[in-house]
Design a binder for these strands. Structure first.
Length: 299
DNA sequence: TTTTCACCACTAAACCGTTA
DNA sequence: TAACGGTTTAGTGGTGAAAA
């Protein structure tokens, strides 16, 4: 759905990249690659775009950059876990599973080596975690339902007053706002009030968590309970690889969240005075017309 | 009453324009 | 020019209303 401007999402590219890695591992260790069809489909999907060739080139170049790193990790793991007997594209299929792994290599010992792969066009490290409101409420023990309901009620009332249309259905309200510039602007302004509130609540609630729960939250966002997981990031400045388990928060760590230069959409989590994670409160699909979520980035 | 389906929320990934 | 804030795509899964 694009209107003049370029398409922003890159889902197909991300999947394509994951499969390139998958295929590479298969090739290295003589495993049958069973996702040829998916790879072909994704490749077509990317090439269908007006700048498809460019998008392909980027992924292929990034892929070349990470090959040595992947091979080194696996050769190292093979010496401990045995030869590789299978490669699984976890990809989008197990979104609900407690791991951000994209590709799993299975060893003869039944142990795994898992990869979370991020291929980025320019700078940045990609989203570490994306939490819906439900998760936030659970981790930080609060309820934002009254506020969310009020945001939608406000929009409903505004639409009723300006257009005479009377509906409470969020899907309909959203469509009306998207079609009318003035309403959309109003919805954004309204939504930002609640977005800022949610951000403040999360910051406050995080800081009032007992130290142990702060650590548990950080361990959850980094996925560091998974001993077999590697994160591989490739962007315009090169390749970065780390093991989430190495980032496990320690009991002596001082963990504090702070607002950075007055931002009302995010906060920074400091560990022993070092800015380590950045949270950003926003919406899945446009401010004021969709559900809230919070993304966490590695600094 | 049971099954189906439409709608919405949640999660993941990453591009893009603006700004500091 | 890197970081930030906003936005988009896309898949899974839950829920309640409509259909059978």
């Amino acid at each position: 759905m694009k209107k003049g401007n370029k398409e922003k999402s890159n889902r197909a590219q991300a999947d394509y990249f994951e499969l390139l890695v998958c295929q590479y591992i298969c090739h290295l260790y003589k495993i049958t690659f069973s996702y040829s069809e998916d790879l072909a489909k994704l490749s077509n999907k990317i090439l269908d775009k007006e700048d498809g060739k460019e998008r392909m080139r980027l992924q292929n170049n990034n892929f070349i950059k990470i090959q040595p790193g992947i091979k080194k990790i696996l050769d190292d793991e093979i010496s401990r876990k045995g030869k590789i007997i299978n490669v699984v594209w976890t990809g989008r299929h197990f979104v609900i599973e407690q791991s951000t792994s994209d590709v799993d290599a299975e060893h003869s010992s039944n142990k795994k080596t898992r990869f979370s792969i991020k291929s980025i066009a320019k700078s940045g490290t990609g989203t570490l975690k994306n939490l819906g409101l439900g998760k936030l409420e659970k981790w930080f023990s609060f309820s934002f339902k009254n506020q969310t309901d009020k945001m939608w009620r406000d929009l409903k009332n505004y639409i009723r007053q300006t257009t005479g249309k009377n509906t409470s259905k969020r899907g309909e309200l959203k469509k009306i706002a998207q079609k009318n510039k003035k309403i959309l602007e109003w919805a954004k302004r309204n939504g930002k009030i609640f977005q800022a509130r949610l951000n403040s609540v999360c910051l406050e609630k995080f800081n009032s968590l007992p130290p142990k729960q702060k650590r548990e939250f950080l361990n959850f966002i980094t996925d560091c309970h998974d001993e077999d997981l590697y994160v591989v990031i490739v962007n315009n400045s090169g390749v970065a690889i780390y093991k989430p388990v190495d980032k496990t928060a320690k009991p002596k760590d001082r963990i504090i969240a702070k607002k950075e230069n007055g931002s009302d959409v995010g906060y920074t989590i400091y560990i022993n005075k070092i800015p380590t994670y950045r949270a950003q409160t926003n919406n899945t699909n446009g401010i004021g017309i969709s559900a809230f979520c919070q993304r966490i980035f590695l600094i």
